[in-house]
Design a protein around this nucleic acid. Structure first.
Lengths: 198, 198
DNA sequence: GTTCGACATGTCACTGATGGAATGTCGAGC
DNA sequence: GCTCGACATTCCATCAGTGACATGTCGAAC
């Protein structure tokens, strides 16, 4: 009777691995390539993390070594328990919100550097958002029409989030830069007065 | 001659601390309260982290113990070196992008749980976004007109980002749920066919 | 005068993530 | 037949972050 365990749960790397394996067996190396290619912008993982996690998952019975190939290759396969855990995580565990934001932390302290530098910071954020947006558009062109109905749909949905996020970031940063510029104007007369005083 | 060091740099906790201290001296306990209150949604920090970081900053000369009070209270003050480091970080170090997203990772694997559960997931995301948006509106009401020109401006800008982000999230999640619903409809006839077959 | 809650700091064990080193095998092309 | 790049795994040091525990002091209210 262990219905009320500690319940900490997050640890999404394992769910990323289970998710990838749910599409078919793969080796650690294969998975690493997938992480580098398609999960790079959602859940990056390093090789050391990945192999360690596969070991743990195997020990807990969520995945199994289905075959061994050349060069010590171990092909992992998701088990029924693994699939169950994946589904459980998807539908029952509420996603962790991503609170930390380096970008926003800086905004809080921008009054330390004066309006000019502050505006510069925000303008660079806007530029970066435009750049990222363009890259995502490029990816969309590239992957258009790949996969079956469901896979294409969810890929589209994820990409659309990126597009909307970068668009919102650009608009916000430009708006914010404008607000700072307004403050700059407002303060300009004061500076002139300070000069006259001298 | 150490002009070309390793340059890893991020480690924003220390810059958060420097930023807070740039507004005036404070103890670890004071800073902890500030982290819990105003930086909670941008850069959360625990007590253990905070005291450790203050110790390190003091050792490196970026902050200094300005006074000691009752109960072993140590009041920290930012030094000129600390201010320089803060400004350097603000204007010269490009902000780290926040790649990991639990929310989005799940989207990639939603095809594992069928359209009903997938739609449910997206609808809950939309609801959550609405809830967070409302909370931010509440905060805006509460802090309205606090602080001087510059402080109010940057606080406003940060809050506006939260509002725009949650609004975008809601719209996206609702749009996505709609797309999934469309796929559901499309598949319904197939299911009927499958039933007839039997 | 005692008690209790807020003030205040310090330390520890653990986990997830990063980056790099070490080691080795296979197969295609020269 | 050799060589080199891709394949493939394992191990390790380090760091940021989390949560819990330990310890103690001050001041207000009873």
């Amino acid at each position: 009777m262990s219905t009320q365990e500690g319940k900490i749960e997050p640890m999404s790397l394992r769910h990323a691995v289970l998710g990838l394996l749910s599409a078919g067996p793969a080796s650690g190396y294969d998975l690493l390539k997938t992480f580098e290619l398609s999960l790079e912008n959602v859940w990056p993982a390093t090789q050391s993390q990945l192999y360690a996690e596969l070991g743990r998952l195997a020990q807990e019975g969520l995945v199994r070594v289905a075959a061994e190939g050349p060069r010590g290759r171990k092909e992992y396969e998701i088990t029924e328990e693994g699939r169950a855990e994946l589904r459980h995580w998807l539908v029952e565990v509420s996603p962790a919100v991503n609170r930390r934001s380096d970008m926003l932390l800086r905004v809080f302290f921008l009054d330390q550097v004066g309006t000019g530098a502050a505006r510069g910071y925000l303008e660079r954020l806007a530029e970066r958002a435009v750049h990222e947006h363009d890259q995502l558009l490029g990816i969309r062109e590239f992957v258009i029409g790949q996969g079956d109905d469901a896979l294409r749909l969810y890929g589209d949905i994820a990409l659309e989030w990126g597009l909307r996020l970068t668009a919102a970031q650009r608009e916000w940063a430009e708006w914010a830069a404008g607000r700072v510029a307004a403050l700059e104007q407002e303060k300009a007369p004061e500076q002139e007065k300070a000069l006259e005083q001298k």
